[in-house]
Design a protein around this nucleic acid. Structure first.
Lengths: 210, 210
DNA sequence: GTGTCAAGTTGACAGTGTCAAGCTACGGAA
DNA sequence: TTCCGTAGCTTGACACTGTCAACTTGACAC
């Protein structure tokens, strides 16, 4: 009988994701979300406290699907470098497929970073990146500074996910080229690996990443 | 007598930067800006059309100071790698010193990317990055894909500038370490260079970046 | 029955962006 | 001088927003 129950909270979450995907975080409005979910304008506040609470719930959902996509992307892949590449691809793919969630997920303005459930899933996702890089350290370069490398990869991949629309514009206006985000992930990991691996192993990277 | 003229537009721009620095882009409000500038609530619209127009003007100002900071950071520095590092440092320093401008500059939501003046200064700033990387190609690795490398460095440095607050939180919650943004710029360029340089020249990087 | 509690509604409030209209001062043109 | 236009800004209105307090409704426990 769970399907006959209205699940207002869930309806509000998905209406929010749809609205953010459609109009961006700026175009989001509690009342419009309530309208789309077919409830009164104060219903969201009842479930989520305030608008930040609702957006935090959506961001939490986004990190959960990101982690799930990491899982499926990594099955059967053993080589540490290949695993990092797979995670990068999963990240940009998730961003592309869930624009409503991603528009909110890494936005300090909109989300309550201290919400315990949100903090848990966000940390979990970040730790998987750290683990992937620790594996690269173990396999290729014992001197690798894992924390700094994780910061770099996260900054780069998230910057890429965020800037993708702007980069197209910028490339047009400056007569430079830009590849699809998916290809860029490959390029990024290649660049990363030439740097992450010690001199003796650097010849490994180019072929083994695919 | 230009100093006796009120310069309402300028007052509105700096009130906007101050307000965004204080409350973030979300806390920004046209009427509050007007209040702080001591003009009526509709004055901003008269000068900038709508709220997006005002934010675009502030973003334009931000890119101008960024370019100016690139200029001063690069005087007397010749080595291509050192120049890239200097630009990275100038970028994060500008972001830290002008939070109000940076909160708006790379935000598609808030800014009109088609505004000609904005497009010009944003493209100019990006082209300087591309030039810096082209110089690295010329000096170290003729096969370097300049466009992809520029995308990577821009994504990483901008991601870093954006994520800096979140990264601190994340590091605390996951028991990982995070260095100050300034130090991370150094780390980033070291990582970059190990990758950017061809195998025969890779020994060059570590010492020559400082 | 009575009580309690979650879920949701209704109505109000101050605050918001934007638009149309008006006001004021000033710089030519007649 | 008078007239006209225009830049710069104000005033007032409109629909919309987030949030709060008060209310209703229904289900379950005792």
């Amino acid at each position: 009988m769970t399907s006959s129950r209205p699940d207002t909270a869930g309806a509000l979450r998905s209406a929010t994701a749809a609205l953010v995907a459609e109009r961006g975080p700026t175009g989001f409005s509690l009342r419009e979300v309530a309208r789309r979910a077919g409830v009164s304008h104060a219903a969201p506040a009842h479930h989520f406290g305030d608008s930040r609470g609702l957006l935090t719930a959506v961001a939490t959902e986004g990190f959960q699907t990101l982690s799930a996509n990491f899982d499926t992307a990594l099955v059967g892949i053993e080589a540490p470098v290949a695993r990092l590449t797979a995670m990068g691809r999963a990240y940009v793919r998730t961003a592309q497929e869930n624009p409503g969630h991603f528009g909110v997920m890494c936005n300090d303005e909109l989300v309550d970073n201290d919400d315990p459930e949100f903090a848990a899933v966000a940390s979990a996702a970040y730790l998987r990146l750290v683990d992937a890089i620790a594996a690269i350290r173990d396999a290729h370069n014992p001197d690798l500074d894992v924390d700094a490398a994780a910061t770099l990869t996260f900054s780069a991949i998230h910057g890429l996910a965020i800037l993708t629309p702007s980069l197209g514009d910028l490339a047009d206006k400056t007569d430079t080229a830009t590849a699809p985000a998916d290809d860029l992930v490959e390029r990024f990991t290649e660049f990363f690996m030439h740097g992450f691996a010690p001199a003796s192993e650097r010849a490994v990277a180019p072929g083994s990443t695919h």
